[in-house]
């Protein structure tokens, strides 16, 4: 079937996608790399000079840098923990016989489709507001002092909001994986007298391992880039308490006009993302062979 003609045609059909993505990947990244070695401030665009590694050293010695790396990690790890553990529990629950399963699924999956600014503003105002929010109302009803979430636990509040957005994704994928588990295997284990816990540990969990890996890797890629949720709730504050790496780069570039510094930060972000990407590519690549 693959004559020379069809092969040429195939290449021709592929070309637009490949060329577009190649330009999209190479040009901006090369520019970022180049800028990262320049002393380049938008407030003083006439005075651009080569600075060598100055920007990296500057970024590296900035205390905000380490805080932002730490905050990035806290957001990624915190959200992953909540969504994976919660997702497994929810998937197990939704796999049970339930009246109205379709509607329950729809309700659980919904937060994923809410755009980040809406999710963050709704949580910040209507739920977490210390005077009028629903959580404050609950606290009043229980007779305890309401918590000022964004003042007392700013980073934790962001983690909660982001976890709410991503819990459906984890649940849906883990449920899909759970439902592909052979029922005969489950029944055999049950007949052999395996209880719920041992069935879960020795049968269900190993079966879901691959799906869990995929959830971790894909979420990590998105979680490394959390931006809008921070912008509309804390704007990175108080101080640098909720500034993650993307937010720090945004601040440096568009509020500090420091093109060189922001580019150096961008290159660091690329390195971080690539470490995760390598693992994800392996997991997905394995699937291609089958």
């Amino acid at each position: 079937m693959a004559t020379r003609q069809t092969r040429t045609l195939a290449r021709f059909m592929m070309a637009p996608s490949v060329i577009l993505l190649l330009i999209w990947m190479v040009v901006p990244l090369a520019m970022t790399l180049w800028f990262s070695f320049l002393n380049y401030n938008l407030l003083n665009p006439a005075n651009v000079s080569f600075g060598g590694l100055f920007n990296y050293r500057y970024f590296y010695t900035d205390p905000a840098f380490f805080q932002s790396i730490w905050n990035t990690l806290v957001i990624v790890v915190g959200v992953l923990l909540i969504t994976i553990i919660g997702g497994i529990a929810l998937a197990l629950l939704l796999d049970q016989p339930i009246f109205g399963q379709g509607i329950v699924r729809i309700l659980v999956i919904s937060p994923f489709f809410v755009m980040p600014p809406v999710a963050a503003l709704v949580w910040k105002n209507m739920l977490m507001n210390p005077s009028y929010g629903v959580f404050a109302d609950i606290a009043h009803a229980l007779g305890v002092q309401p918590v000022d979430w964004f003042a007392s636990f700013p980073l934790f509040s962001i983690v909660i909001i982001v976890a709410w957005q991503w819990l459906p994704f984890a649940t849906l994928i883990l449920l899909t994986s759970l439902q592909s588990l052979d029922t005969e295997q489950k029944e055999a284990a049950e007949m052999d007298g395996a209880g719920f816990v041992s069935r879960f540990i020795y049968l269900t969990l190993p079966h879901m391992a691959r799906a869990i890996t995929v959830v971790i890797l894909i979420q990590t890629i998105f979680l490394l880039g959390i931006y809008a949720e921070i912008l509309v709730t804390t704007n990175g504050g108080p101080g640098y308490a909720t500034t993650n790496l993307p937010f720090l780069i945004y601040r440096t570039a568009l509020l500090g006009y420091d093109i060189g510094g922001a580019s150096a930060g961008g290159i660091i972000a690329v390195v971080l993302a690539n470490i995760v990407a390598i693992f994800l590519m392996r997991a997905v690549g394995k699937n291609l062979d089958r």
């Binding site: 592929m14 996608s17 490949v18 993505l21 999209w24 990947m25 040009v27 901006p28 990244l29 520019m31 970022t32 800028f35 890629i221 490394l224 880039g225 931006y227 790496l245 993307p246 780069i249 945004y250 570039a253 568009l254 093109i259 922001a262 580019s263 961008g266 290159i267 972000a269 690329v270 971080l272 993302a273 690539n274 995760v276 990407a277 994800l280 590519m281 997905v284 690549g285 291609l288």
Partner: peptide
């Protein structure tokens, strides 16, 4: 297969890394 994997890898680039050049 290599082209597919490479396309996937472009998705891994953090948006913020190219904020400066794209903005300019």
């Amino acid at each position: 297969k290599d082209i597919l994997m490479w396309m996937l890898s472009t998705k891994m680039m953090p948006a913020v890394a190219v904020l400066v050049p794209i903005y300019l």
